[in-house]
């Protein structure tokens, strides 16, 4: 009578990540550093977002060898990225036993119209969102966890802040609405009516929502927690910094104790140089990863 891949099992796995930091890693050694620093999971990929941005070209699912090495190196959950709409990359990662798949705008989309139908898989998915409509559509397709898109690989927190504030403001608006206003709001957001009813009755999103896309310092991580994120993804911010081990530990501790400002001050002292950031207005509109997906 035991059931695998139910919503409760898939969403529950994300609930266990709450208050934690999920770190991008490109090899087994980085994965071990992340685990020792207290990461709750690692994201295995071939290049971190800032390198993808620099190198250009098509970014695809990582070589399975890298993902496999990371899975062997650590006991914490291992996530991996598939291209938006790439059914076969997702099935490959599921067959390899990856614990969570990120259908990610960091990679070059395989399908510009359709996202994966994620409720067809046993493995759970996390997806990016910029607003409640995107969140609703991804959950409708079966995503079990959300993250803000931010602007990956920039080390600039401004887009992650914008997206988290937007989602949370829209959630608060739905909660405050009377029930007879929900259908119109559903049409305006491109969300299902049933989804908005669920948000209203729960008083929150039905799945965990992490922050991602621009976290570069312990203070950035704490800021996202302050704004209501359930946890934090750090992409390029750790292994593109001067001292990855110290940055990793400091970001984990700042996430746990995000309102303890004296502590965050201590954590942030003499950390060395954070990853070099990019001002968003210097990125051509067509190169903004957040515009991928809908």
């Amino acid at each position: 009578m035991s059931q695998h891949g139910t919503d409760r099992v898939k969403r529950g796995m994300a609930e266990m990540q709450k208050g934690g930091v999920i770190m991008d890693v490109v090899n087994a050694e980085q994965a071990r550093i992340a685990e020792a620093a207290g990461a709750t999971a690692v994201m295995a990929l071939e290049r971190v977002p800032s390198d993808i941005r620099r190198d250009g070209g098509v970014a695809r699912m990582a070589d399975p060898r890298i993902t496999e090495e990371v899975m062997k190196a650590v006991s914490i959950p291992v996530m991996a990225k598939a291209r938006i709409g790439h059914i076969v990359e997702a099935r490959i990662l599921e067959a390899m036993g990856v614990d969570y798949i990120d259908e990610s705008e960091v990679l070059t989309p395989a399908d510009e119209e359709f996202h994966l139908l994620k409720n067809q898989y046993t493995v759970p998915f996390v997806c990016g969102c910029r607003n409640l409509g995107e969140a609703a559509r991804r959950i409708g397709e079966g995503a079990s966890m959300l993250r803000t898109k931010g602007e990956p690989g920039t080390g600039n927190i401004v887009e992650a802040v914008r997206h988290l504030r937007q989602v949370n403001a829209e959630v608060r608006k739905v909660i405050a609405m009377s029930e007879d206003e929900l259908m119109t709001e559903a049409r305006n957001l491109g969300a299902s009516y049933e989804f908005l009813k669920e948000v209203k009755s729960l008083g929150r999103l039905p799945v965990v929502n992490f922050a991602a896309g621009g976290v570069a310092t312990p203070a950035d991580a704490a800021l996202m927690m302050e704004l209501g994120a359930d946890g934090v993804f750090v992409g390029s911010g750790i292994f593109k910094s001067d001292n990855p081990e110290r940055f990793a530990r400091a970001i984990v501790e700042a996430t746990t104790h995000y309102q303890d400002y004296k502590l965050i001050a201590e954590l942030s002292k003499d950390l060395g140089i954070a990853m070099k950031g990019i001002e968003i207005s210097t990125i051509a509109a067509g190169e903004r990863m957040q515009e991928r997906g809908w």
Binding site: Q3, H4, G5, R8, V9, D99
Partner: peptide, 9 residues
Amino acid sequence: GRQVDSFEV
């Protein structure tokens, strides 16, 4: 096992 083996019963 891993997450794909997770279950409820």
